[in-house]
Write a protein that binds this DNA or RNA. Structure first.
Lengths: 187, 187
DNA sequence: ATAGTTTTACCGAACGGTCAGTAAAATTCT
DNA sequence: AGAATTTTACTGACCGTTCGGTAAAACTAT
């Protein structure tokens, strides 16, 4: 019965909207069902548990973000411009895809949790993205674009955290300028 | 009257620990009761609702943070040193009082929620602290310590968000240096 | 007919919250 | 002082509701 192939996707998007608004624990499966205009039991036909549904939402969102960030960047060959473009892309994504932004802000804190290993997978997916950002900074350091004193991982965290805290593009542009001045090599 | 006072404080601290670990919606009143070694009904003797209990935890924590930040700072008369001290105090607090740090990280996202006005009070308490930081930056700008291009509110957000994302002091020191280079006037 | 999809009906456990009652401390009365 | 009363601190049992999750019936398209 191929009538509605998009049902699963519909559920994922409804779940993402709900999780973004109220957080993982603030949302019930029936709320998600209602948002998706679907009966609750149908969600369990596509996803084995609430945890697994969340993980798929997370993974899907991180894929979107990673694609958005690095597809553009790879067309650039100068490292200074690469990094500059990355920051711009990130701001662009965070101000337009506010659902993803909120989910990241909300659930990033659970990376510290070790009581349920479903959070470990969530963290791992995020960390693999962070590493790509971190690597880009590291390479820029080697090419003497970025001040050699900065630690790539810490700089990546600063970018990822500092440029996601608001969804007002003007504020984020201002913050970006501060961060950028702090990163680049003093001439 | 079995026991003596400090019961209310005991509950607040148990609640804070629990909220820090699992977030507001991730924790039940019975869990908090268990953590405080107290019966659940007793919590309702001191606090009218879970929301109100959380607000008291939040308010108490923000008071602690604000005291820690500004008591030291006010002894300083040079604005450059004032601001520098503030950043140091903030890092110090975030790396040592990790429960408060986690609660802030967790629940800051709910500032955007308008469906329950209890969150508005939570937000207001935070914003009054942010304004004090913001004012300090603004004054430093007037005295030509801080680059005049930076927006005080955005800079305050960058500090408050960027320097709370980890609880590893080394990372936070690195991030502080990047932010600082981005803030101060280029000579 | 059959496989894929969706709904109905239901479950035990846990949720936030309430309430009648109680023992001890504090206060008032004599 | 001590008896009588009121207030404070606390408990256990319980309420209605909602939670995540399940079994199986019912529908739909090939």
């Amino acid at each position: 019965m191929r009538k509605k192939i998009n049902t699963k996707q519909k559920i994922i998007e409804a779940a993402r909207k709900s999780f973004a608004e109220k957080g993982y624990n603030g949302v019930s499966m029936s709320e998600i069902a209602k948002e998706a205009k679907v009966k609750k039991a149908l969600i369990y036909y596509y996803f084995p548990s609430k945890e697994e549904l969340f993980y798929e939402v997370w993974h899907y969102s991180m894929d979107e973000l990673e694609t958005h960030l690095f597809n553009e960047v790879e067309n650039e060959n100068m490292y200074l411009k690469k990094l500059k473009k990355l920051l711009k892309s990130y701001i662009d994504f965070m101000t337009n895809k506010t659902e993803v932004q909120r989910i990241i802000l909300r659930e990033r804190v659970n990376f510290s949790r070790t009581d349920q290993d479903s959070w470990k997978r969530v963290k791992d997916r995020y960390m693999s993205l962070r590493e790509r950002v971190s690597n880009l900074i590291e390479e820029s350091k080697n090419l003497e674009v970025i001040d050699s004193n900065v630690d790539s991982n810490d700089a990546a965290d600063l970018i990822l955290n500092g440029l996601s805290s608001s969804n007002d593009p003007r504020s984020l542009e201002n913050i970006r300028e501060i961060i950028w001045r702090g990163l680049v090599k003093n001439e």
